[in-house]
Design a binder for these strands. Structure first.
Lengths: 109, 109
DNA sequence: GCGCTGTTTCGACATGCATCGATACAGTGA
DNA sequence: TCACTGTATCGATGCATGTCGAAACAGCGC
């Protein structure tokens, strides 16, 4: 488990100057995490859910098996986009707040 | 060559409502294109280059072979992020203007 | 036409990854 | 403790993809 630590405010806008190798590595890892349709839907389900968090049971209906959902949620966690917390029987996922803004910033001129 | 046509203004912010299957497909394709470190550096090199365009010869020094550079530029073209134009001996790449804003919009609450 | 340089395509290879069923783990309630 | 539900991990499989060298293509200058 390599788990690149994204260090949320990472990189300047792509239009400002060429990214360094390390910057590209960190930023690409985040984009890659959103580069799968199933993961993107899972992320969107969490991000748009009431209260800013969602139980796995709320978002498991994306057309793939339960182990696959779990696998994708793990990937999103490892990329630093989501956090998870177990409360009793259920596990809740949340969007890491600064990450969306950081990624948007990289794409903004 | 599937070449999903991105139809630039694609999708609402991820936080607004869950993406549909089709929206996720289109948007994930763009994120996926930026999800490789080499491609992200190439894209950044084009996006930050003087005049908004760059010759392949200007950006080929990213640590991989020249055919690999060409392969990645093709992927970025197919994803709708770059356009290319041959002018005499050299081929110039440009960022498709609206795409950056569209992707940033998806990530903005 | 011929050679030369810049760029793309081709074919092959190794690695990565999305997916699944089976299984293990965690917590609840009886 | 035992059964039950929700979630994560394991192991296997098939496909996607990043990479390269070799070869093809495109323009230019002679």
């Amino acid at each position: 488990m390599p788990v690149l630590r994204p260090a949320v405010p990472c990189c300047p806008p792509l239009t400002q100057r060429p990214l360094t190798v390390l910057e590209a590595e960190l930023t690409a890892a985040m984009f890659k995490a959103l580069g799968d349709p199933v993961r993107l839907r899972l992320f969107s389900l969490v991000a748009s859910h009431d209260g800013g968090e969602a139980c796995v049971c709320d978002i498991s209906d994306v057309g793939v098996s339960q182990p696959t959902v779990s696998h994708h949620l793990k990937k999103l966690r490892e990329a630093g986009l989501l956090t998870s917390e177990r409360r009793g029987t259920w596990v809740y996922y949340r969007v890491v707040p600064a990450v969306l803004a950081a990624m948007a910033g990289v794409l903004t001129a």
